[in-house]
Every structure is written in C-alpha cells, then in structure tokens.
Design a protein around this nucleic acid. Structure first.
Lengths: 198, 198
DNA sequence: TCCCGCATGTAATAAGTTACATGATTCT
DNA sequence: AGAATCATGTAACTTATTACATGCGGGA
C-alpha cells in the first residue's frame, strides 16, 4: 500500500476512518476541528486519496443512508481489515524528521545589523505565540469537560495540546532573550559605531 | 522583484550575496555550513533562481578570476543596488506563519490506544532532540572562539542557536510528560480494560 | 589525449493548496 | 421549475528535492 513514497494523507484518512465511518467532507471537518492544530487535509488531496484507497480496497465506500438534510448525498467510507493492517504498519514505522526552514530566523540573521526590523519581527512573533497560548487554553477548558466522561480520549488530546503549549512557551522565552541580545548589540553599536565591521 | 508569489529562495540568495559575492556552489555550501540548521537550498532551486535574479538585474554575474584550482570555472554573483533594495523590502515584510503538520503528533494521537508504539516513538524523538542539543552545544563552543574577534556576528548566530536549544529542551520535557500520561493511561487500561471505550 | 573533479543546469517527481466545476438532493 | 445547499472531483499552479546531464579547466 505504498501509494506514493512519502505522502501521509492516505494514512491520516485511514486513521480517522478507524474511529468511525465518514464521508470525505466529514473527514475534512473532523481534522480541522479536532486536530487542526497539527494536521489538516485539503480537498485536493483528500478526494483523490479516497478513491485511491478505495481501489486498493483499504476502504470501501457506500452511499450514506439515511440521506442528510439537504444537498448532495454523501458517500460514506469505511475502513477495511486490510486498511487497518496498513494503518497499523504505518503507525509503527518511524516518524520522518521534517526539514526545518524557519523564515523568522533567516530574516533575523540577515537583518541583524538593523535591530529595529528584527525587534519588530520578534514582537509580532511573540504576539502570535501568545495568541496560540490563549487558543490552547480555551481548548484545555473544553478538555476539562470532556475528561469527566471520556478520560482516555482526553489524554491523547492533552498530550498533543501540551506539545503546542511547551513549544509556544519556549518560543516566547526565546523571543525575550533574543530581543535583549539584539538591543544589546544595538547599544554596543551606538557606543562604537561600525567597530565590529572593520 | 516578485519572482513567484511565495518562494523565499531568491531572497535567501540575496541575503547571502549581501555579505560577499559568491558562486552558486559557494552559496549552497555557505547555507549548509553556517545556517543549515534552519535554512538550506537545493541546486534545483538555487541555479534557476540565480539566473532569474540576474535577468532581473538584482544580481550581476561574472566569471571568477582567478580561476579555482581545478574543475569548471565558477561564475561569481554580486548583489546590485536594486538587489539590496529588494532584499531590504523583503526583510521588512512580515514573516509568513508556516503551516504546521506534525507527523509525530498524528501518530501518537491515532495510536493512543497502543501505548507501546507511542512510547517507542517518544523515545526515538527524545533521542533526536538530545542529539540536536549536543550538536548545538558543539556549535556554541565554536561560537565562543568567534566571539573574541567578531562579537556582532557572533550575536546573530547565537540568537538563532538559542531558538533551537529552547525548542529542543521544551520538546524533551514534553516527551517525558507525554510518556507519563500515556503509561498512566495504559495502567488505567490494565486495571479496568476497555472501561472508557464503552 | 583523456579523464578527473568540480560547477552548473535541467528533467522528473513529489506533495500540496486554491479555486473552480460538477452532481444530486431539498426547499420555495 | 428553479434556487439553494452541500458533497465531490479536478485542473492549474506552487514550491521543493533528487538525480542525472553537461561544461570546462587542469593533471596523468
């Protein structure tokens, strides 16, 4: 079931369908709403992947009954036994380390001689992290409610949420540190202009 | 100088050439060796971008003199005044927030019912972060030497390095926390099998 | 002369997003 | 019947990597 060597879309789909059968649009929404913080699929990937999975018999499709309230009737996709096997194998396989390309660092590095710009970038970035943290806090509150009735499901949400929180907190701390270093450089520059660019 | 709407390759090139003229291969090596932790370019992007930049007169090219020791003679690219303007404008523009797709979290989330796999993923991930940290520590030592003669250049390296350190440390801490949560779930599962999936 | 080694360039492939086109049902 | 609504499908484009092809100087 190596569809294309490295795309993870089909496995994300299998993973969602392993919980319950869904239509394509439902998978899309489910990802967005539940784990949109770290995984999404666009329709342009999702639907071709679904037909591919169907021809490979890793899922099977059937018109949804009963029909929804309005609109075109949905086709519901259900994971097959073979699909579960493929999913399990993928889940076992080691996580590919993702290449890191961090535009913020590139800009800071290249603009280091002009601290004003760098500080502006840092301020924007810090605000983003702060926003993320409050977003995570809202999710965490919802999780507190869920925890009462479904503790196991809550745990896995919380684990992924904590990842985001830890990273955002670390980045905020880094932002402050970086701003300090860059302004210190600027102060040194004022005291002895161009001294280090001789 | 909007080459393609969103590619940052030409600007990375301009940024490197703003320091000193280089050949394509030198740019590639410079990125790899100096800031490979957060930015790289592949030849398949680099060379087309260089010709594009040349036709737009943001850089100019000339055969390198004197020739290198062996091999095909290099063409040296030099940033133009227009190139510096374009670079400055890009450096000012806000950093695009990058989409987050974190395979590790997807796997943990989907495999949460099977903590053995999740713990294995976490262990591997932790080892990677540890490896990264020791890599960063080595770079930091080199920076300590550089700091004596070129403090300003050292500062910008250190800022980017600290980003990596902070994130890696946060992720290691998260890893331990996550392992705890997932094993706790496994223990609960042992005590009351399937209780929460009713 | 020929081939070694490096610089440069390019074709094939991958993975993904955006925006639009198409279908099929219910509501007015 | 036609409009509204939602699901599905697809074409065009973007960004990037990999692996190979080509060019060109010096040394064996």
């Amino acid at each position: 079931m190596t569809i294309r060597p490295n795309t993870r879309t089909p496995f994300a789909i299998l993973g969602v369908l392993a919980m319950r059968p869904m239509s394509g649009a439902e998978i899309c929404r489910w990802l967005d709403e539940r784990i949109g913080n770290f995984w999404r699929e666009s329709p342009g990937q999702l639907y071709p992947a679904l037909t591919e999975l169907t021809t490979r018999k890793l899922v099977r499709s059937a018109p949804r009954v009963p029909l929804g309230a309005r609109g075109r009737p949905a086709t519901e996709f259900t994971i097959t036994a073979a699909g579960r096997v493929a999913l399990r194998r993928w889940l076992e396989s080691p996580v590919a380390s993702e290449p890191r390309r961090i535009e913020l660092l590139l800009k800071l590095f290249l603009a280091a001689e002009d601290p004003r710009q760098s500080l502006a970038h840092l301020a924007r970035f810090r605000a983003e992290q702060l926003e993320l943290l409050s977003h995570y806090a809202r999710i965490d509150e919802e999780l507190a409610h869920l925890a009462v009735e479904r503790p196991a499901e809550t745990a896995k949400f919380r684990v992924t949420l904590r990842y985001g929180v830890r990273v955002a907190e670390a980045l905020m701390a880094w932002t402050d540190e970086a701003a300090g270093v860059l302004t210190a450089g600027a102060v040194a520059e004022l005291a002895a202009p161009h001294a280090e660019r001789r």
